[in-house]
Design a protein around this nucleic acid. Structure first.
Lengths: 349, 349
DNA sequence: GTGAAAGCGCTAACAG
DNA sequence: CTGTTAGCGCTTTCAC
């Protein structure tokens, strides 16, 4: 643990000035071969590494970018980080990330700390508008992901409305008439998903029942399952806030003797890799998580490169329906039987 | 984007010296209420935030710790990061992580960059010994995770030998006689797992067939499946390097008309959360991923706090068998039929 | 080509 | 209690 060599040590050993060493290291300037060789030798000998902190302090560049996500345990975010990481690396940047653990208070603090150590950040968050302003006030390039951003701030997201509408169409086409949505209100895309789904169903003259989960997690999908199933008018299709909820839901449903998809169709959102391996395989909508991360990072780099944020604007990724086995057409008989359940709607609220 | 306020601006505005402001900010010292109020006012007014880089340069502390992992898409690492993150946060530290993406070359570089920005790091890696020395040469506290570390360097891991032995015992007890291991040689725990399994089987006079995957991934489990199944002497139980491989294997097996566990028992390692939801639910060994991250971070903090690395030593977590549905007892008839397959062993080798 | 000198924003003695 | 004075390790004019 002896002291780290500094640029001064190198300069002394090579018999040149520290300025020369600095320029050599940053390849800001060429020198006579002899000098360069001596410097390189000194560097190797001392195993010198420049101190990025000192450099950053002067240049104002850190060589790192940050990503703040809600929960690294959610494969959607994992994929996003992977995508972002790849692009960051390609640009010669390091990726630092913070997992805010869905914790509003912590988020503010973490983001503040992070923002001072990076050249820009990608924020995937539920924070209210005011807090977003505070982030912008940090003066770093920011890209918001998965949510609408204030005017003039670049953002990226998946068309949640379209995703939900797609799901609605599928379910209706398959003959489902009694559809439930397991929503998670605090999340930004929830409203759009809800809107897409209900508008689609409305267009077909169908109602939508909403249940609430307290988190986008497997555990919450498990928790809410029984109340959905034991409802007087059991839904014949359940749209889950995301794949995690869907997985939890299906797990408990199975253990309760409900057969999916023959009793109830289930669909998730995100298309996490494990959706292929649940039983039955999960029908879902691909939100292109990895691509989301990649593109968010590209947007960020354009900003870092000096492009005007308002010129970058908002980027919207198209969702894609992924049909698997957790949804199935309803036999006609069942459709008609359930149709009655729709009637109460006339009774008004 | 106008210039950031510095401590000097605050001092000027508050009418005190910059040293006073510095001490106030770090609560190194108390001042007269009047002064403190003025300073605070100036800070608020200017929206001043201290620059952690400048601070770090002097104190030599960054307030961050780093974790280097192989692949964030693997839930085992995700959980580990989560555990590590929690403990780091409790200690008032930020967690920075790098995903080395199983890339040997990149790892070196990333680690170098990371190490200069943190007060210590946790390394989960396959790097050869020499490279580990290079990391140690960085002069930062390090904890190695999931692998043996050089003498005197703290490390943490799960008892891979015991884990494998446990699996062996289970399988033998269930009457399996023809057991295969899908190994991943480049990974550190692989050898111990292989040893635990083969020693257990040997004790029962049973052979072990080894197959090789090229990565600890679902895709590799899928790829290797057919060659395992189409083998002349089809195994009646398959032990997979980890749950990811097991999931991939089961997926393809199912599509090939193989029924699990009645045709083949499958067991994984790690106990990732999704193992409960595969079909059938995956029998596995819990490697306590989250706890691994937590304890690794605790070990790291003990080092950062100045404890002598050799005094910290190696920590070994105990694996736990998690019985689910992908393993089943073999009917006696099957056992005897397969027993013949064991015979060739006598032929030597 | 090369080097001297002036800081980046902040902390840490040491005075007063 | 408060201020003065050195730097941390490095980059960056600007001379030589």
């Amino acid at each position: 643990m002896n002291k780290k060599p500094t640029i001064r040590d190198v300069a002394a050993k090579a018999g040149v000035s520290i300025a020369t060493v600095s320029k050599f290291i940053n390849s800001t300037q060429r020198f006579t071969a002899a000098v360069e060789r001596k410097i390189q030798a000194a560097i190797d000998e001392l195993a010198y590494h420049s101190n990025p902190l000192a450099r950053s302090m002067i240049t104002g560049k850190t060589g790192s970018v940050g990503v703040a996500i809600l929960d690294i345990a959610n494969p959607h975010f994992t994929s996003m980080v992977k995508g972002a990481n790849r692009v960051a690396l390609e640009h010669g940047y390091n990726l630092l990330f913070v997992d805010t653990e869905e914790n509003q208070a912590r988020e503010d603090e973490l983001l503040g700390a992070l923002s001072r150590r990076v050249d820009g950040l990608i924020v995937s968050s539920r924070m209210p508008e005011e807090q977003m302003d505070r982030i912008l006030a940090l003066g770093k390039p920011v890209v918001f992901s998965g949510r609408p951003a204030p005017a003039g701030v670049p953002s990226i997201g998946v068309d949640a409305y379209a995703a939900a509408y797609m799901i609605g169409e599928l379910l209706v086409k398959q003959g489902h008439r009694h559809i439930a949505y397991l929503g998670f209100a605090p999340a930004r895309p929830d409203m759009e998903r809800m809107r897409g789904l209900s508008e689609c169903l409305e267009a077909h003259g169908l109602p939508l029942v909403r249940f609430e989960v307290r988190g986008p997690t497997i555990a919450e999908g498990e928790r809410v399952c029984s109340s959905v199933i034991l409802r007087k008018e059991k839904p014949d299709a359940v749209v889950c806030y995301n794949d995690m909820v869907a997985i939890g839901f299906m797990g408990v449903a199975r253990s309760l003797g409900i057969s999916i998809p023959s009793d109830i169709s289930v669909v998730g959102v995100d298309n996490i890799p494990f959706g292929r391996f649940t039983s039955p395989a999960l029908t879902t909508v691909d939100t292109q998580s990895e691509r989301l991360g990649e593109e968010a990072m590209r947007l960020l780099f354009r900003q870092i490169a000096g492009e005007n944020p308002p010129d970058i604007g908002h980027m919207m990724l198209e969702p894609r329906l992924v049909m698997r086995e957790s949804t199935a057409p309803r036999p006609v008989a069942a459709v008609e039987a359930v149709a009655v359940a729709v009637m109460p709607r006339k009774r008004g609220r």
